[in-house]
Design a protein around this nucleic acid. Structure first.
Lengths: 222, 222
DNA sequence: TGGGCAGATGAGAACTCTCTCATCCGGCTC
DNA sequence: GAGCCGGATGAGAGAGTTCTCATCTGCCCA
């Protein structure tokens, strides 16, 4: 349950997605045109399809349509153009299970993939992440340190979530930028530093270790 | 699949919830102490339990614990005190299926109840609401009118959602206030008027009809 | 026809959020 | 030990959001 087909023709996005998926333990395969997408998706070798709408050859809608016409129940998450609700509606009506509109944060795509691949969808979605005395309530966007509740802004929360999902692992600024800010953010910025500082201030300095020249790391709990 | 047990001792909230549930087509029953809650919940007469943590007699945790000890699989949504993530974690670990922290917007509770009662949880959650040429993307908080995409703020979106979920129905300011702003908002405010104006400006005046002395109504589509 | 009242509207205060920029600090290297 | 460089920090600009308030408008009824 971890073979994922990524149909996306923009190199930058395809690589962003496939790298991230691999790091998260999935086995991604990338194709960059509609015909191959349909072909591979029909092979039965995949557990989920991430499908860009704007594919050359056969567009995403067409791929989806033919796939469903062949009675495939493969879960499909479509990537729709920036801001196009029309595409979203059409895609969902055309049999997509979910969608992401570009530009998206990788963590969000990951959450949706996990949701679609979950063995028992009846099982409650994990909405509170914990790491030692640190707890993140994914729904209310609030955090708690040793019982004390802390309000986090959207960005602060997304960053904290990324750390908690990769405890003990050194995360580079680039990784954090692409996971939290999206794939098309200015890599020269020092936002990451600034937001790590915000988190340190709100959650306590002891959680976030600086690894000089490398990035930051959420300290592991004993 | 529509009999809901509400265990809540604060009158104001109990009535807010039960009224809303009735209006949404459910059949709510209210109890105001832990012993009755456990009693009724064990009867097999209900499809879901909305359980306040701070109940007199037996508190919510205890009710939940005993319920699960008796092998009941009744879906339970707990209501936790303002900001207490600790309660939330304890509740979910104690076998709750979901939670709401007070003060909550009614529409949100409703969404969670619907989710838990859905026949086939595998079926994609409805994430785009439409009403004629009006579409609301619940996830990206964007709306579309005849293909044109419009950005809405959180409040604007919640208000629009309420209208679209009750098309053609006159909604009083009080109803809108409690649904969109929560149950403890100053009833003397004219925020509703102001936000209806914002929606008219962004989505078009034709959608929102003023019913003098009564409230507002989303016009039905031909 | 005039007054009153419900609703519409304009303006703006308070606040939050996000990000940039300039400067400071301190460890590492030579 | 000096200088450099990565990172920490403080400050603030700019944008967006939410809500209040005062005023305007126009419908309805006496």
């Amino acid at each position: 349950m971890n073979r994922i087909l990524v149909a996306e023709d923009e190199d930058r996005i395809a690589s962003f997605v496939s790298k991230g998926l691999r790091a998260a333990g999935f086995t991604p395969t990338v194709v960059d045109d509609g015909v191959s997408a349909l072909d591979y998706a029909s092979s039965g070798e995949f557990d989920l399809l991430v499908l860009d709408i704007g594919l050359p050859g056969l567009d995403g809608f067409e791929v989806l349509k033919r796939l469903r016409a062949n009675r495939s129940t493969l879960p499909v998450i479509i990537l729709t153009a920036r801001q196009s609700i029309t595409d979203t509606v059409a895609g969902l009506e055309g049999g997509a299970d979910d969608y992401m509109s570009k530009p998206f944060r990788f963590e969000e795509l990951l959450a949706r993939i996990r949701l679609r691949l979950r063995e028992d969808p009846r099982e409650p979605e994990l909405t509170v992440l914990t790491h030692g005395a640190l707890a993140l309530d994914l729904r209310s966007r609030r955090a708690a340190v040793e019982g004390r509740t802390v309000e986090l802004s959207a960005r602060e929360f997304a960053l904290a979530e990324t750390f908690v999902r990769h405890p003990g692992q050194v995360l580079s600024r680039e990784q954090l930028l692409s996971h939290v800010w999206g794939y098309d953010f200015d890599p020269g910025s020092n936002v990451v530093d600034v937001y790590v500082r915000y988190l340190r201030k709100k959650l306590g300095v002891q959680w976030f270790e600086t690894v000089r020249g490398m990035g930051y790391r959420l300290v592991e709990v004993a």
